[in-house]
Design a binder for these strands. Structure first.
Length: 489
DNA sequence: TTTTGAGTTGTTCGA
DNA sequence: GTCGAACAACTCAAA
């Protein structure tokens, strides 16, 4: 089709803050029309939103990512217009003002986001503006991956096997080389005015130290992972004290890299270096889990609120603000748990293995409702994902899809000794215990008084005694879960 | 339709 | 110290 330079178009950016493998941007740029790039911050107070409002850590990331996208777009000769409010109002209004004939965007495969997009499309149609919608936040559309009886999968393994055998994710699209901008001067909000970043106190300093948001950094991280880190992935990914994970999750969360870019890059790496296949497969199955959780969310928009297994509606959760707060602040007296919670608070992320341990601890040792933990993670994780976060919390609690058996109660001491043998991880995040010998690093309350004193530790003062006794808490949890079974027959 | 085999990540206890 | 069994039954997915 010959490029027509007549009417401009709009590309609405959402959770796809990149320019490569961006189907909407790609199509818009091929149309030859001048492009206005738009990002809309939804305002939860303004009523219904298409997606769950970002937590604090995610808001920080979003600001950096938008800044990075602004840079990328201006290199291409374009710019990013920022607006806040309701997309179904803002997009048509802007389209009218600039005389746009087409609006492009990538859909988000979640019920509220799709509903929001449908409404927008309707509004646009009333103005005789064309909507062009694309898929791209998943490897496979939920509708394309159903069981024989047309339901969504509830068990991971068959889901993943099917996806791998039946679905061939499309090849990633190249980034446009140049974008023709609209000549009109357009009003944009100022990113700083959105208040996405903390000021007083500025708790984001450690985040800045830890992370570089944006598409360029995401690509670099993916490349570095596939070239180097993946070698030790299969064995090392479970060791929180060592750097054997990809660190891609927040980049993926904001669409700075797409799942199919990851998929194809990983496949390519495995083909080139067969020795690394095991690590790649393991890594890809993590991408599979993200996919699985998103599909689950697509089918159950209330995933973060309602037990998938409704018999858990009767679970005897305890309300204990003080205990919840000690868990949040990393003051439970269990070193691995505290290390994880402090890593989260400090860096906006937590090693995957430790996430399971702290989640199990909150739900089973403290008997606190998984939703409390889910909300805390949502607020503090830079990679908080609307699918993975609630789905995994439900999985740990035992009320989720393909859930862990009720008797699987992580022992935070054994988990520490098994996966953080020398205590590297604990020492890094719980510095007041740093001097303890490996023998007691995961059970400081058993250390001889002499050693404690030599290490400058006074239990109950410089570091808390255990908030609960493991054996007692375990017995209590088993009892609570048994009560649930008795009740439901 | 009924049957069959399997299901991310663990812990404890007793031989 | 090591090892296998028990910890429940249920639902899912496919043949």
């Amino acid at each position: 089709m010959a490029p027509t330079r007549s009417a401009p178009c709009i590309v609405w950016f959402r959770e796809d803050l990149r320019i490569s493998d961006h189907p909407a941007l790609h199509a818009a740029s091929r149309s030859g029309a001048p492009i206005v790039c738009l990002y809309i911050l939804e305002n939860p107070e303004a009523g219904e939103t298409g997606s769950r409002p970002f937590g604090s850590a995610s808001r920080w990331w979003l600001a950096q990512s938008l800044r990075s996208l602004q840079g990328r777009l201006s290199e291409l000769g374009s710019q990013l217009i920022l607006r806040s409010g309701t997309p179904a109002r803002i997009v048509p209004e802007l389209a009218r003002r600039i005389g746009a004939e087409t609006v492009f965007w990538n859909d988000i495969a979640q019920a509220p986001a799709l509903a929001m997009a449908d409404r927008l499309e309707e509004e646009l149609r009333a103005q005789e503006i064309v909507s062009r919608r694309f898929a791209g936040d998943l490897l496979a559309e939920p509708a394309a991956l159903r069981t024989r009886d047309g339901r969504g999968f509830r068990v991971f393994t068959p889901f993943w096997r099917r996806l791998q055998s039946d679905i061939r994710p499309a090849d990633p699209l190249p980034a446009p080389e140049k974008l023709s901008a609209v000549s009109a001067e357009l009003v944009s909000d100022r990113l700083e005015d959105w208040g996405l970043e903390p000021t007083r106190p500025d708790w984001a300093a450690p985040l800045r130290e830890t992370w570089t948001p944006g598409e360029t950094a995401a690509q670099a991280r993916l490349d570095a992972f596939l070239e180097e880190t993946v070698n030790g992935y299969a064995g090392g990914r479970d060791l929180p004290g060592h750097d054997h994970t990809s660190g891609l999750s927040p980049h993926l969360r904001f669409g700075e890299v797409s799942p199919r870019q990851i998929w194809h890059a990983a496949r390519f790496a495995a083909a080139e270096r067969p020795a690394v296949t095991t690590g790649i497969d393991k890594f890809l199955s993590e991408l599979g889990w993200r996919e699985f959780c998103r599909h689950l969310l697509h089918d159950r928009p209330d995933l973060a609120d309602r037990n998938i297994d409704s018999s858990f509606d009767a679970f005897p959760w305890q309300r204990d603000e003080a205990a919840l707060q000690r868990w949040q602040r990393g003051q439970t007296g269990y070193p691995l748990v505290d290390a994880g919670m402090r890593q989260l608070w400090y860096s906006g992320v937590m090693h995957n293995r430790v996430r399971m341990v702290v989640a199990s601890f909150l739900v089973k040792h403290l008997l606190i409702d998984w939703r409390e933990g889910e909300r805390w993670f949502w607020d503090t994780l830079v990679d908080a994902d609307p699918g993975s976060n609630p789905a995994n919390w439900q999985w740990v609690a035992g009320c989720g899809a393909d859930a862990a058996p009720y008797f699987r109660i992580f022992n935070p001491i054994l988990q520490g000794e098994k996966f953080d043998q020398d205590g590297v991880y604990v020492r890094r995040w719980v510095p007041e215990l740093a001097q303890l010998s490996p023998r007691f690093i995961h059970r400081p309350w058993e250390a001889p008084p002499l050693e404690l004193r030599a290490c400058g530790i006074e239990l109950g003062t410089t570091y808390p005694r255990p908030i609960v006794d493991h054996a007692k808490a375990r017995a209590r949890a088993l009892q609570a879960y048994a009560s649930l079974r008795d009740r439901t027959g």
